[in-house]
């Protein structure tokens, strides 16, 4: 099965938030009032029952204000930090179409995925004590439908398709934007996490931070160390300890009272 992806052309986003509504509707999420941060943004951050947030970034260059709208959600990384950190078998799965999906029957709520995620996306629900995020509408894509946010987008800012097609489309669009005057236009598909299934076209790809995206995201090195060499060290010490003491007994035996010198 081909990997599916979502293309977000930030140059076409008008900040209508229809995708936010569609996400809440399709996923049957209750809208809870949050903090008003003094911007047009619905909430300051993602929440366990709010998986799709348009960030209204206010970015100033040479005294000129740009309003950079950016759809913020799970990136569905090819090399996913949440999956690496998760200890519960089958709680975070990669579907055949490349989507990273959470299976809540198996989630134990440890929250390690929150720490493993380079984009700070998963959120723990205080009521169910389980972690939630965008599913790329796996229940829609499974039956050949596009995700709800894409279905509803009125400006074609969002497109759904196979990852290969969309990457080509993204490159074409970046060239178009460059010809149009945005000399730094480019594609955001960070290689530090093996590429993502959510691909952005940014008007200024040299500065993804202005959109609130990390410049070169990777799985945190402490998480990689924890799930790699530290795990090996643990196995060596536990098994070595048990086998070592056992063979010590075989070789040297117990300390007997009468063997002590000068008695």
């Amino acid at each position: 099965m081909q990997t599916v992806a979502k293309l977000i052309d930030t140059s076409l986003c008008i900040g209508c938030k229809a995708c936010e509504v569609a996400c809440q509707e399709w996923n049957d999420q209750e809208f809870t009032l949050g903090t008003f941060g003094g911007t047009y943004q619905t909430k300051p951050e993602l929440e366990h029952n709010f998986w799709n947030l348009i960030k209204f970034n206010e970015y100033e260059t040479d005294g000129q204000l740009s309003w950079l709208m950016m759809k913020y959600q799970c990136m569905h990384c090819q090399d996913a930090g949440c999956m690496k950190a998760c200890p519960a078998p089958g709680a975070i799965v990669r579907l055949d179409n490349g989507t990273v999906d959470f299976n809540h029957d198996n989630c134990i709520g440890c929250g390690y995925c929150i720490t493993g995620c380079p984009f700070d996306v998963p959120r723990l629900s205080p009521t169910t004590k389980k972690v939630y995020k965008c599913t790329l509408c796996s229940d829609r894509t499974a039956v050949g439908l596009e995700p709800a946010c894409i279905k509803t987008c009125p400006t074609n800012c969002l497109t759904f398709g196979t990852r290969t097609d969309l990457l080509r489309k993204a490159e074409d669009r970046a060239v178009e934007l460059q010809a149009d005057g945005s000399t730094h236009a480019g594609v955001y598909n960070p290689q530090g996490v093996g590429g993502t299934n959510v691909i952005y076209v940014l008007k200024d790809a040299s500065n993804p931070e202005s959109y609130g995206l990390p410049k070169d995201p990777t799985i945190p090195w402490t998480v990689s160390l924890w799930k790699g060499p530290v795990k090996l060290l643990g196995s060596v010490i536990f098994l070595g300890g048990i086998l070592g003491t056992f063979f010590h007994y075989i070789r040297f035996g117990p300390k007997l009272e009468e063997e002590h010198p000068d008695d």
Binding site: A85, C110, G111, Y112, I114, T115, D120, R123, L124, P126, P220, T222, V223, L225, W226, V230, K231, L233, G234, I237, F238, G241, I242, T245
Partner: peptide, 29 residues
């Protein structure tokens, strides 16, 4: 995890297992 600062959590995911390895190793002995 939802309250603690990210930098602290990134340190704790290393410190906790390393201390546990040392501790369990000591107790095996």
């Amino acid at each position: 995890p939802e309250i603690m600062p990210r930098t602290l959590r990134l340190g704790a995911v290393l410190v906790h297992p390393l201390a546990a390895i040392g501790s369990i190793g000591g107790i095996i002995l």
